[in-house]
């Protein structure tokens, strides 16, 4: 896509804060996260429902619900260009063409009254910088449909004539139509049944490799992360509590208690467990986050210090953990 070297960060989020403000309350959805995505790599963001994963994704494209969602501070840069200060029309040029998004629910994310062909065509037409003819664009639509495994003869059909898995393929086709440099996939397989999940994921990975895109994959399925991601960030209550390469997170080093809890809740084929081991308690109320480490009310190892002080981030090479229990490593360096 670009001349950027493989190791450079194509997308960088620094100290992002997002709130949802309504008349009655303020929801602190994202509280100072740092993320970076390298060109051509896949970053997985995992965490429970309500951890702020989708909010982070929508912030990148500046698609937070109007009037309510606000980015209060921080910076998001794409290829060195700051996105948060871009004007409306410049942002529209980036959306779909350079950064695009695959949404969670394919049942509702396609327009019911437009044909699927039109919806893919729209994406191409909006970013038709090379002034290709209508015929050329239609041919592209055919090719894109075939590449996600849908016969091009069906492009004149409407979303309700497709099954859930096929609709998600179309959503993917729309997102990838302009060969974006970054694609954000927000739980792309959550609404699908398990057999279709595997197909869709495999197809996404193949297309990603083929087109050389970078991808942010938001999920709560650690298995998916292990299979498809290069880097992983674990989010809890709007913060990143741990991040690193897949090896760091899945390897046998010390982890954040929340990450441990996530792994603990997966049943394993080898063990003879009768019951799952969920993380006790619920996500903290985002309108009223706990003091200190936001995970302390649910943490089995919580100490007095956890209740009072926010843990400092510690780096172990590529591995990053924010927990009082984990010492050593280097403190976070703010360049």
């Amino acid at each position: 896509m670009s001349s950027i070297a493989q190791n450079d960060n194509i997308l960088e989020i620094k100290d992002l804060h997002v709130v949802y403000e309504t008349d009655s309350e303020t929801v602190y959805a994202v509280n100072g996260i740092d993320l970076s995505l390298k060109a051509g790599k896949t970053l997985g963001i995992v965490g429970e429902t309500g951890a702020g994963k989708t909010t982070t994704a929508l912030s990148i494209l500046r698609l937070l619900p109007q009037d309510i969602g606000k980015i209060t501070s921080g910076s998001i840069t794409f290829n060195g260009q700051e996105l948060l200060t871009l004007g409306k029309s410049e942002m529209q040029k980036i959306r779909g063409a350079s950064i695009s998004m695959i949404f969670q629910d394919p049942m509702t994310s396609l327009n019911p009254v437009n044909t699927v062909g039109d919806q893919i065509y729209e994406s191409l037409m909006l970013h038709n910088d090379e002034h290709k003819s209508k015929k050329e664009l239609e041919e592209r639509v055919d090719a894109i449909l075939e590449s996600v495994g849908i016969p091009k003869t069906r492009k004149k059909e409407y979303p309700h004539q497709f099954s859930g898995g096929m609709k998600q393929r179309i959503v993917i086709a729309i997102a990838l139509a302009c060969h974006p440099a970054v694609v954000i996939a927000d739980e792309p397989t959550t609404a699908l049944d398990v057999t279709i999940q595997a197909q869709v994921l495999a197809m996404m990975s193949a297309l990603r490799d083929q087109l050389g895109m970078a991808m942010i994959l938001i999920t709560h399925d650690l298995g998916v992360v292990a299979e498809t991601c290069d880097d992983v960030a674990v989010m809890y209550a709007g913060e990143i509590v741990e991040s690193g390469t897949v090896e760091d997170i899945f390897g046998h080093v010390r982890h954040h208690p929340y990450t441990e809890g996530l792994f603990g809740s997966i049943p394993s084929l080898g063990s003879d467990a009768k019951r799952l081991k969920p993380i006790s308690g619920l996500m903290p109320d985002p309108t009223n986050l706990p003091t200190g480490c936001s995970f302390h009310p649910r943490c089995p190892y919580a100490t007095e210090k956890c209740r009072e002080e926010k843990p400092e981030a510690r780096y172990f090479g590529t591995h990053f953990v924010a927990c009082h229990l984990i010492t050593g490593g280097e403190p976070k360096n703010d360049e």
Binding site: L61, L63, P65, S89, Q92, K93, I94, R95, G96, A97, S100, M101, F103, D105, T108, S109, L110, N111, P112, Q119, E122, S123, L126, H127, V171, I174, A175
Partner: peptide, 17 residues
């Protein structure tokens, strides 16, 4: 408020469209 309008925005469609 619907999801498909958000999809259209994510494609880079302008307000009038």
């Amino acid at each position: 408020r619907s999801d498909y309008v958000r999809t259209a925005r994510s494609k880079g469609a302008g307000e009038n469209r």
